[in-house]
Protein backbone atom coordinates (compact mmCIF):
# COMPACT_ATOMS: atom_id res chain seq x y z
CA UNK A 1 0.00 0.00 0.00
CA UNK A 2 2.43 2.63 -1.15
CA UNK A 3 -0.39 5.05 -1.86
CA UNK A 4 -2.65 5.80 1.04
CA UNK A 5 -6.32 6.73 0.57
CA UNK A 6 -5.91 10.43 1.48
CA UNK A 7 -3.23 10.76 -1.23
CA UNK A 8 -5.61 9.31 -3.81
CA UNK A 9 -8.60 11.42 -2.78
CA UNK A 10 -7.84 14.52 -4.85
CA UNK A 11 -7.35 12.31 -7.89
CA UNK A 12 -10.68 10.56 -7.41
CA UNK A 13 -12.37 13.86 -6.74
CA UNK A 14 -10.87 15.27 -9.92
CA UNK A 15 -12.28 12.36 -11.93
CA UNK A 16 -15.71 12.77 -10.35
CA UNK A 17 -15.77 16.49 -11.09
CA UNK A 18 -14.59 15.96 -14.68
CA UNK A 19 -17.25 13.26 -15.14
CA UNK A 20 -19.93 15.60 -13.76
CA UNK A 21 -18.85 18.26 -16.25
CA UNK A 22 -18.98 15.79 -19.12
CA UNK A 23 -22.52 14.73 -18.10
CA UNK A 24 -23.55 18.37 -17.81
CA UNK A 25 -22.17 19.21 -21.26
CA UNK A 26 -23.73 16.08 -22.80
CA UNK A 27 -27.16 16.94 -21.40
CA UNK A 28 -27.06 20.37 -22.98
CA UNK A 29 -25.67 19.32 -26.29
CA UNK A 30 -28.43 16.72 -26.72
CA UNK A 31 -31.45 18.71 -25.54
CA UNK A 32 -30.45 22.33 -25.90
CA UNK A 33 -33.57 24.44 -26.18
CA UNK A 34 -34.46 27.75 -24.60
CA UNK A 35 -32.49 29.19 -21.70
CA UNK A 36 -31.22 26.71 -19.10
CA UNK A 37 -32.53 27.31 -15.60
CA UNK A 38 -29.00 27.43 -14.16
CA UNK A 39 -28.03 30.08 -16.71
CA UNK A 40 -31.06 32.25 -15.97
CA UNK A 41 -30.67 31.94 -12.20
CA UNK A 42 -26.93 32.62 -12.25
CA UNK A 43 -27.38 35.59 -14.55
CA UNK A 44 -30.24 36.97 -12.45
CA UNK A 45 -28.05 36.89 -9.36
CA UNK A 46 -24.86 38.09 -10.94
CA UNK A 47 -26.51 40.93 -12.87
CA UNK A 48 -27.29 42.47 -9.46
CA UNK A 49 -23.62 42.10 -8.50
CA UNK A 50 -22.67 43.71 -11.82
CA UNK A 51 -25.16 46.52 -11.23
CA UNK A 52 -23.67 47.15 -7.78
CA UNK A 53 -20.11 46.93 -9.05
CA UNK A 54 -20.93 49.27 -11.93
CA UNK A 55 -22.38 51.79 -9.47
CA UNK A 56 -19.29 51.53 -7.27
CA UNK A 57 -16.96 51.93 -10.26
CA UNK A 58 -18.97 54.92 -11.49
CA UNK A 59 -18.93 56.39 -7.99
CA UNK A 60 -15.18 55.94 -7.68
CA UNK A 61 -14.67 57.41 -11.15
CA UNK A 62 -16.85 60.40 -10.26
CA UNK A 63 -15.06 60.81 -6.95
CA UNK A 64 -11.72 60.60 -8.71
CA UNK A 65 -12.94 63.03 -11.35
CA UNK A 66 -14.03 65.41 -8.60
CA UNK A 67 -10.69 65.08 -6.90
CA UNK A 68 -8.83 65.85 -10.11
CA UNK A 69 -11.16 68.81 -10.77
CA UNK A 70 -10.54 70.12 -7.26
CA UNK A 71 -6.81 69.90 -7.76
CA UNK A 72 -7.17 71.71 -11.08
CA UNK A 73 -9.09 74.51 -9.39
CA UNK A 74 -6.39 74.91 -6.76
CA UNK A 75 -3.71 74.90 -9.39
CA UNK A 76 -5.73 77.42 -11.37
CA UNK A 77 -5.35 79.89 -8.52
CA UNK A 78 -1.61 79.40 -8.47
CA UNK A 79 -0.69 80.01 -12.09
CA UNK A 80 -2.24 81.07 -15.36
CA UNK A 81 -0.57 78.26 -17.20
CA UNK A 82 -2.43 75.66 -15.16
CA UNK A 83 -5.60 77.68 -15.59
CA UNK A 84 -5.21 77.27 -19.33
CA UNK A 85 -4.61 73.55 -18.90
CA UNK A 86 -7.73 73.28 -16.79
CA UNK A 87 -9.73 75.11 -19.44
CA UNK A 88 -8.48 72.65 -22.01
CA UNK A 89 -9.55 69.77 -19.81
CA UNK A 90 -12.97 71.37 -19.48
CA UNK A 91 -13.14 71.85 -23.22
CA UNK A 92 -12.40 68.17 -23.72
CA UNK A 93 -15.12 67.29 -21.22
CA UNK A 94 -17.56 69.53 -23.11
CA UNK A 95 -16.57 67.85 -26.33
CA UNK A 96 -17.18 64.45 -24.77
CA UNK A 97 -20.55 65.64 -23.49
CA UNK A 98 -21.47 67.03 -26.90
CA UNK A 99 -20.43 63.76 -28.51
CA UNK A 100 -22.59 61.81 -26.10
CA UNK A 101 -25.49 64.19 -26.72
CA UNK A 102 -25.10 63.68 -30.45
CA UNK A 103 -25.10 59.92 -29.96
CA UNK A 104 -28.26 60.16 -27.87
CA UNK A 105 -29.83 62.45 -30.48
CA UNK A 106 -29.03 59.87 -33.15
CA UNK A 107 -30.67 57.20 -31.03
CA UNK A 108 -33.71 59.43 -30.51
CA UNK A 109 -34.07 60.20 -34.20
CA UNK A 110 -33.69 56.50 -35.00
CA UNK A 111 -36.35 55.74 -32.40
CA UNK A 112 -38.75 58.20 -34.00
CA UNK A 113 -38.00 57.09 -37.56
CA UNK A 114 -39.56 53.65 -37.40
CA UNK A 115 -42.81 52.31 -36.08
CA UNK A 116 -41.55 49.77 -33.56
CA UNK A 117 -41.83 50.49 -29.89
CA UNK A 118 -38.36 50.80 -28.46
CA UNK A 119 -36.77 51.31 -25.09
CA UNK A 120 -33.47 53.03 -24.33
CA UNK A 121 -30.99 51.05 -22.28
CA UNK A 122 -27.46 51.48 -21.02
CA UNK A 123 -24.69 48.91 -21.09
CA UNK A 124 -23.57 48.25 -17.51
CA UNK A 125 -21.14 45.36 -17.95
CA UNK A 126 -19.16 43.43 -20.51
CA UNK A 127 -19.07 39.65 -20.99
CA UNK A 128 -17.74 37.38 -18.25
CA UNK A 129 -15.48 35.39 -20.56
CA UNK A 130 -13.30 36.85 -23.28
CA UNK A 131 -14.39 34.10 -25.69
CA UNK A 132 -18.05 35.10 -25.67
CA UNK A 133 -19.29 38.46 -26.86
CA UNK A 134 -22.09 39.44 -24.53
CA UNK A 135 -22.96 42.59 -22.60
CA UNK A 136 -25.35 43.37 -19.76
CA UNK A 137 -27.94 46.14 -20.15
CA UNK A 138 -29.74 47.90 -17.32
CA UNK A 139 -33.24 46.89 -18.42
CA UNK A 140 -35.02 43.66 -17.58
CA UNK A 141 -38.37 41.94 -17.34
CA UNK A 142 -39.65 44.73 -15.08
CA UNK A 143 -39.22 47.11 -18.03
CA UNK A 144 -40.85 44.74 -20.50
CA UNK A 145 -37.73 43.16 -21.93
CA UNK A 146 -38.18 39.61 -23.23
CA UNK A 147 -35.87 37.02 -24.75
CA UNK A 148 -35.00 37.42 -28.44
CA UNK A 149 -35.78 41.11 -28.61
CA UNK A 150 -33.49 42.91 -31.05
CA UNK A 151 -31.01 45.43 -29.67
CA UNK A 152 -29.86 48.24 -31.98
CA UNK A 153 -28.07 51.57 -32.05
CA UNK A 154 -28.06 54.41 -34.52
CA UNK A 155 -25.14 52.65 -36.21
CA UNK A 156 -26.97 49.39 -36.79
CA UNK A 157 -27.73 46.03 -35.25
CA UNK A 158 -26.07 45.26 -31.90
CA UNK A 159 -27.53 41.86 -31.03
CA UNK A 160 -30.41 40.15 -29.27
CA UNK A 161 -31.61 39.77 -25.71
CA UNK A 162 -30.46 36.37 -24.58
CA UNK A 163 -31.36 36.17 -20.92
CA UNK A 164 -33.79 38.73 -19.51
CA UNK A 165 -33.29 39.17 -15.77
CA UNK A 166 -35.62 41.12 -13.50
CA UNK A 167 -33.73 44.40 -13.67
CA UNK A 168 -30.98 43.65 -16.21
CA UNK A 169 -30.58 41.54 -19.30
CA UNK A 170 -27.81 39.69 -21.06
CA UNK A 171 -27.42 40.66 -24.70
CA UNK A 172 -25.61 38.46 -27.19
CA UNK A 173 -23.68 40.67 -29.60
CA UNK A 174 -23.95 39.92 -33.30
CA UNK A 175 -20.17 39.31 -33.39
CA UNK A 176 -20.48 36.41 -30.92
CA UNK A 177 -19.56 33.07 -32.47
CA UNK A 178 -22.97 31.64 -31.62
CA UNK A 179 -24.93 34.61 -32.99
CA UNK A 180 -26.68 34.62 -36.35
CA UNK A 181 -29.13 36.82 -38.25
CA UNK A 182 -30.98 36.52 -41.54
CA UNK A 183 -29.45 39.09 -43.87
CA UNK A 184 -29.54 40.40 -47.41
CA UNK A 185 -27.43 42.55 -49.66
CA UNK A 186 -29.35 45.82 -49.88
CA UNK A 187 -28.44 46.50 -53.54
CA UNK A 188 -28.99 43.09 -55.11
CA UNK A 189 -31.32 41.57 -52.46
CA UNK A 190 -29.14 38.45 -52.31
CA UNK A 191 -30.03 36.59 -49.13
CA UNK A 192 -27.86 34.78 -46.62
CA UNK A 193 -27.14 34.31 -42.93
CA UNK A 194 -24.72 36.55 -41.04
CA UNK A 195 -22.78 34.85 -38.23
CA UNK A 196 -20.09 35.94 -35.78
CA UNK A 197 -16.56 35.46 -37.07
CA UNK A 198 -13.03 36.07 -35.86
CA UNK A 199 -12.32 39.34 -34.10
CA UNK A 200 -14.91 41.98 -34.78
CA UNK A 201 -15.88 40.67 -38.20
CA UNK A 202 -19.00 38.90 -39.43
CA UNK A 203 -19.32 36.20 -42.07
CA UNK A 204 -22.24 35.97 -44.47
CA UNK A 205 -23.02 32.35 -45.26
CA UNK A 206 -25.27 30.66 -47.80
CA UNK A 207 -24.99 33.36 -50.45
CA UNK A 208 -25.23 31.73 -53.85
CA UNK A 209 -22.16 31.65 -56.08
CA UNK A 210 -24.15 33.39 -58.83
CA UNK A 211 -25.38 36.24 -56.57
CA UNK A 212 -24.38 39.81 -57.30
CA UNK A 213 -22.20 40.87 -54.36
CA UNK A 214 -19.32 43.33 -54.45
CA UNK A 215 -17.03 44.83 -51.81
CA UNK A 216 -18.70 47.83 -50.18
CA UNK A 217 -22.26 46.55 -50.51
CA UNK A 218 -24.47 47.30 -47.52
CA UNK A 219 -25.77 44.27 -45.62
CA UNK A 220 -29.12 44.67 -43.86
CA UNK A 221 -31.36 42.40 -41.82
CA UNK A 222 -33.74 40.26 -43.86
CA UNK A 223 -36.41 40.05 -41.18
CA UNK A 224 -36.84 36.32 -41.64
CA UNK A 225 -35.36 35.10 -38.38
CA UNK A 226 -38.14 36.31 -36.10
CA UNK A 227 -35.71 38.43 -34.06
CA UNK A 228 -34.42 41.32 -36.12
CA UNK A 229 -36.93 43.51 -37.97
CA UNK A 230 -36.27 43.91 -41.69
CA UNK A 231 -33.98 46.62 -43.05
CA UNK A 232 -31.61 47.37 -40.14
CA UNK A 233 -28.02 47.93 -41.19
CA UNK A 234 -25.62 45.15 -40.21
CA UNK A 235 -22.48 46.31 -41.98
CA UNK A 236 -20.58 46.51 -45.24
CA UNK A 237 -19.07 43.73 -47.34
CA UNK A 238 -15.33 43.72 -46.75
CA UNK A 239 -14.30 40.82 -48.94
CA UNK A 240 -15.92 38.40 -51.37
CA UNK A 241 -14.20 35.17 -52.30
CA UNK A 242 -15.15 32.17 -54.32
CA UNK A 243 -15.13 29.18 -52.00
CA UNK A 244 -15.29 26.65 -54.81
CA UNK A 245 -18.64 25.26 -53.69
CA UNK A 246 -22.15 26.51 -54.27
CA UNK A 247 -21.69 29.50 -51.96
CA UNK A 248 -19.47 32.53 -51.72
CA UNK A 249 -17.25 33.39 -48.78
CA UNK A 250 -18.23 36.88 -47.70
CA UNK A 251 -16.76 38.82 -44.78
CA UNK A 252 -18.74 41.74 -43.41
CA UNK A 253 -17.43 44.62 -41.31
CA UNK A 254 -20.13 45.55 -38.77
CA UNK A 255 -21.42 49.11 -38.88
CA UNK A 256 -21.42 49.19 -35.08
CA UNK A 257 -18.19 49.62 -33.13
CA UNK A 258 -18.86 47.02 -30.46
CA UNK A 259 -15.99 48.21 -28.28
CA UNK A 260 -17.46 51.65 -27.69
CA UNK A 261 -21.24 51.29 -27.47
CA UNK A 262 -22.80 52.67 -24.30
CA UNK A 263 -26.45 53.35 -25.10
CA UNK A 264 -28.73 51.08 -27.10
CA UNK A 265 -32.37 50.66 -28.03
CA UNK A 266 -34.28 47.47 -27.31
CA UNK A 267 -36.90 46.80 -29.99
CA UNK A 268 -39.96 45.74 -28.04
CA UNK A 269 -41.53 43.44 -30.58
CA UNK A 270 -42.67 40.06 -29.40
CA UNK A 271 -40.88 37.22 -31.16
CA UNK A 272 -43.23 34.93 -33.10
CA UNK A 273 -44.72 32.00 -31.20
CA UNK A 274 -42.60 28.87 -31.32
CA UNK A 275 -44.90 25.96 -32.18
CA UNK A 276 -42.69 23.56 -30.16
CA UNK A 277 -43.35 25.49 -26.93
Amino acid sequence: MALSLPRLRPGYLFLVVVLAHVILISAQVNVRSGVPVLEAATFGFFSEVQRGASSIVDGVRNLWGGYVALRSVRAENESLRLQLADTEVQLQEERALAQRTRALEQLLSLRESFGFETMAAQIIAAGAAPDFRTVTIDRGKQDGVAADMAVITAGGVVGRVMVPGERASKVQLLVDHNAAAGALIERSRAQGVVVGYAGDLLRMDYVSEVSDVVVGDTVVTAGIDGIYPKGFVIGRVESVEKSGGAYRQILVKPSVDFSSIEDVLVVKTEPPEDPKR
Binding site: H21, L24, Q28, V29, F46, A128, A129, D131, F132, K170
Partner: peptide, 12 residues
Protein backbone atom coordinates in the same frame (compact mmCIF):
# COMPACT_ATOMS: atom_id res chain seq x y z
CA UNK B 1 -23.57 30.58 -17.16
CA UNK B 2 -22.82 34.24 -17.74
CA UNK B 3 -21.52 33.60 -21.26
CA UNK B 4 -23.44 32.44 -24.29
CA UNK B 5 -21.94 28.98 -24.68
CA UNK B 6 -22.53 25.50 -23.32
CA UNK B 7 -22.45 25.36 -19.52
CA UNK B 8 -19.64 23.05 -18.47
CA UNK B 9 -17.05 23.55 -21.19
CA UNK B 10 -15.37 26.48 -19.48
CA UNK B 11 -15.91 24.70 -16.15
CA UNK B 12 -14.20 21.54 -17.36
Amino acid sequence: ALGSGVIGIGGL
